[in-house]
């Protein structure tokens, strides 16, 4: 962490989806240059947080500032200008299915620049080389394995050399080899390109391996933050349950229900 002013600053964030409260006063700082992990059990709105940072959703209350600009108050053109500095890796890659790998990566370049074809080709091949898939450039997305699709999507995410790269659950559903590949890629890209990375995940081992800073989210708040050793020392029962993967604790094993004996004695209903 080279700088002390945060690149992304979230203050008093409230967000609700219909009746459900997703965030209830989240404060979060992401400093330039590092890899920040946002972790928490499924359903705590980690993906929602990325969408709030990207300006796809607007907070119910509070502020989300990226690079000094309040994302949720920006006009469309300013928001789109800001988004060019952000790359995002979606959970299943989200490649455009009607284009091949090459065109997928060329897409953001073609959309936002007037570069000649030869230069686009060079750029795309360099990005593909970085993720090790230069040979797969003619394949269509449906011919790619899950891990390859994610690497192509990663190449597309960095096509415009963004400032911030966001990863939504990059490790879910990967076999150990492609998991290792992705971990190494995220780390090396972050260093090579001077990115600021945000990883949303619940794969503790892989994420902790590369994250400089970890935020634990639960019940709409940040319950713990710090580096891995700091978290392991954390007094919060919640942090311990999550990091150790204990089945029961502050996050209960049982979905809230009536007493078992009582439930069994009731003869009717489902």
């Amino acid at each position: 962490m080279t700088d002390t002013t945060p690149l992304i600053r979230i203050r008093d964030l409230h967000f609700r989806r219909g009746e459900r409260v997703i965030f209830n006063g989240v404060d979060l700082d992401i400093f330039p240059g590092g890899i920040t992990a946002i972790m928490g059990p499924s359903g705590t709105g980690k993906t929602t947080l990325l969408q709030l940072i990207g300006g796809q959703l607007k907070p119910t209350r509070g502020t989300v500032e990226v690079d000094g600009q309040p994302v949720h108050e920006l006009r469309r053109s300013a928001l789109y200008a800001l988004r060019r500095k952000m790359g995002m890796l979606f959970q299943n890659g989200a490649l455009l299915t009607d284009m091949n790998v090459f065109e997928n990566i060329a897409y953001p370049i073609r959309e936002h620049t007037e570069l000649p074809e030869s230069m686009i080709r060079t750029l795309v091949l360099m990005k593909l080389e970085a993720v090790g898939l230069r040979g797969a450039r003619a394949l269509m997305p449906n011919q790619l394995s899950c891990g390859m699709a994610r690497r192509v999507a990663l190449a597309r995410g960095i096509a415009l050399d963004p400032m911030i790269m966001m990863y939504d659950e990059p490790f879910t559903g990967q076999d150990p080899i492609s998991m290792g590949v992705l971990v190494r890629l995220i780390r090396s890209l972050n260093e090579a390109m001077g990115l600021t990375s945000i990883i949303v995940s619940h794969d503790i081992a892989e994420t902790c391996e590369i994250a400089d800073m970890i935020y634990l989210l639960a019940e709409g708040r940040v319950v713990a933050k710090g580096s891995l050793p700091e978290l392991q020392q954390h007094e919060s029962a919640w942090a311990r349950q999550f990091l150790n993967g204990e089945p029961d604790g502050p996050v209960p094993f049982h979905y809230p229900a009536a007493d078992l004996a009582e439930d069994l004695l009731t003869m009717t209903g489902t």
Binding site: Q56, G87, F90, N92, A94, T97, Y107, P108, A153, L160
Partner: peptide, 16 residues
């Protein structure tokens, strides 16, 4: 299908 596979979201994030 494009919405389901987050292609539309991905385009938005690519500032398209």
């Amino acid at each position: 299908l494009m919405k389901t596979t987050e292609q539309l979201s991905a385009m938005e994030m690519m500032a398209v």
